[in-house]
Amino acid sequence: CHSECLGNCSQPDDPTKCVACRNFYLDGRCVETCPPPYYHFQDWRCVNFSFCQDLHHKCKNSRRQGCHQYVIHNNKCIPECPSGYTMNSSNLLCTPCLGPCPKVCHLLEGEKTIDSVTSAQELRGCTVINGSLIINIRGGNNLAAELEANLGLIEEISGYLKIRRSYALVSLSFFRKLRLIRGETLEIGNYSFYALDNQNLRQLWDWSKHNLTITQGKLFFHYNPKLCLSEIHKMEEVSGTKGRQERNDIALKTNGDQASCENELLKFSYIRTSFDKILLRWEPYWPPDFRDLLGFMLFYKEAPYQNVTEFDGQDACGSNSWTVVDIDPPLRSNDPKSQNHPGWLMRGLKPWTQYAIFVKTLVTFSDERRTYGAKSDIIYVQTDATNPSVPLDPISVSNSSSQIILKWKPPSDPNGNITHYLVFWERQAEDSELFELDYCLKGLKLPSRTWSPPFESEDSQKHNQSEYEDSAGECCSCPKTDSQILKELEESSFRKTFEDYLHNVVFVPRKT
């Protein structure tokens, strides 16, 4: 048989008469490798580009789960590009990614509803959504962080984005990388972005840091009482949809009607710091009717980097990364020049730590249904340095008659930039024990000054392991946590139920 035959053949030295091919099969003959313009397919066939392209389009058009959109890589027609490569849609070739590779997620039936953290986790790592997304989240724990972890990498949506009755959302900033909504599939009414009845939605994105392009379709905003109209108009300008909307697409009466839409800028007039305090004062603000001013709200939190936005980490279910302080308005003076500047002394802060701070007014709604208010920009203030805590785990070892090696770990709280350490030492008198000992005694162990690591005695271990207080009263049991108490109650309830079950099964009433 021919060298490319495997198993047997019907005619000697003829690659077209093989029972099976050793390498690849091409047009009725066995070959060692697939010549151009053919590609290896499933490690035994040679196919042309049209064959591989037909497989790709067949799966793409069917949208069946589990099928493969075949691509070409290293002269092979394979189910998908290997790690580190992405497909070129024009020629199906796998090309190296520039940075992290995109991950295209194809949605069944063309859309997916995100109504819980669990459903959001199914899209973790996706960068391109081939379909439409509907966000409908009523509640949950730590929602802002969970949504950002699972949806934060999405850069492109081919269909539309719909935010509907998501009472738990305060902001859409968890879509931190969303840059493009194509609108290839539109919501009824030709809408590519749809926001309806979101009672706590206050911000779409921080438009000073976020760009969003909507290729096709219109915007729809109705019944978002805490979303200011200025935020919607800003989205029109940034996304390129200005002029597409009709009169009733953006409701003037049901958007922002319960919001404090600040239209003035508060400026800080005085800032002073110490290692654990920050004193702030800002310019006074009074609405047209000074009785509408209820006070100020001061927001602050630790910020290692200057990239904080107002609604980071917030949701309507209680999660809030900001510390909020309510401040009463100052006494009002008739003389504008003698107006008191409101302020606040922030206490209990960490030394040498940068804080993000902003302040906003708290006002009631005027009778004319106009909203007044003022808010400052987010500023960054760093507390002063102070003395560091003591170095940890000092170790001293003498390696000769004239040297001592000293080692330690950095302090747990540096409280500033540590530039150097101060080492103090003092000579001590020799131990009298060394002169009084009889060095001729056998088995004498000389006193040693070398360091030995501390260890816990058996008594201390027994005390720590004991669940009861000892007789001397030195140790006591740790208080039980809520989960331990709940577990004990469940076990007790189970024992009672099981005992009742045994009584009912074992003891049967005697027939009379």
Rank of each mutant, 00 (worst) to 15 (best):
K103A: 10
C105W: 01
E109L: 13
E109G: 15
E109T: 15
K112G: 02
S116R: 01
E122A: 15
R124V: 07
R124L: 09
V128T: 13
V128W: 14
G131H: 01
S132T: 15
L133I: 02
I135N: 00
I135G: 00
N136M: 04
N136A: 04
N136K: 05
R138Q: 14
G140M: 05
G140Q: 15
N141A: 15
L143H: 03
E148L: 06
L151K: 00
L151I: 04
L153T: 11
I157F: 02
I157H: 01
S158T: 10
G159S: 02
S166A: 13
S166V: 11
L169V: 12
S173G: 05
S173Q: 05
R176T: 10
K177E: 15
L180H: 08
I181V: 13
I181F: 01
R182Q: 04
G183Y: 02
L186M: 11
E187T: 07
E187M: 13
I188Q: 04
N190K: 13
S192C: 04
F193N: 01
F193V: 13
Y194I: 13
Y194Q: 09
L201Q: 01
L201T: 02
L201P: 00
L204Q: 01
L204P: 02
H210W: 09
H210R: 14
H210K: 13
N211L: 11
F221K: 01
H222A: 04
N224K: 00
N224M: 10
K226T: 06
L227K: 00
C228R: 03
C228L: 04
L229S: 09
H233D: 06
H233I: 14
H233C: 14
K234G: 14
E236G: 07
V238C: 15
V238G: 13
T241A: 12
R244D: 07
E246W: 03
E246Q: 15
N248G: 09
D249N: 10
A251W: 14
A251V: 09
G256F: 05
D257R: 06
Q258G: 03
S260N: 02
E264C: 05
L265M: 10
L266K: 00
S269H: 11
T273V: 15
T273Y: 06
T273L: 04
S274R: 09
D276G: 06
K277L: 10
K277F: 15
K277P: 00
I278G: 00
E283V: 13
E283K: 07
Y285E: 01
W286Y: 06
W286P: 10
P287L: 09
P288K: 05
D289R: 08
D292C: 06
M297D: 04
M297S: 15
Y300D: 00
E302V: 04
A303F: 08
N307C: 01
N307D: 10
T309P: 06
D312S: 07
D315P: 09
N320Y: 09
N320M: 07
S321E: 13
T323V: 14
V324H: 13
V324A: 14
V325R: 09
D328K: 02
P329H: 03
S333C: 10
S333E: 14
N334I: 07
P336H: 06
S338T: 13
S338F: 08
H341R: 10
P342K: 03
L345W: 14
M346Q: 10
R347W: 10
W352A: 13
I357A: 10
I357H: 00
F358R: 14
K360R: 06
K360D: 03
T361W: 03
T361D: 00
L362E: 03
F365H: 13
E368A: 14
R369D: 04
S376R: 00
D377K: 14
I379R: 07
Q382M: 13
Q382C: 03
D384A: 14
T386M: 10
S389M: 05
V390P: 15
P391M: 07
L392A: 14
D393C: 15
I395H: 11
S396Y: 08
V397I: 13
N399S: 12
S400C: 05
S401L: 03
S401K: 09
S402Y: 13
I405H: 04
W408H: 00
K409N: 14
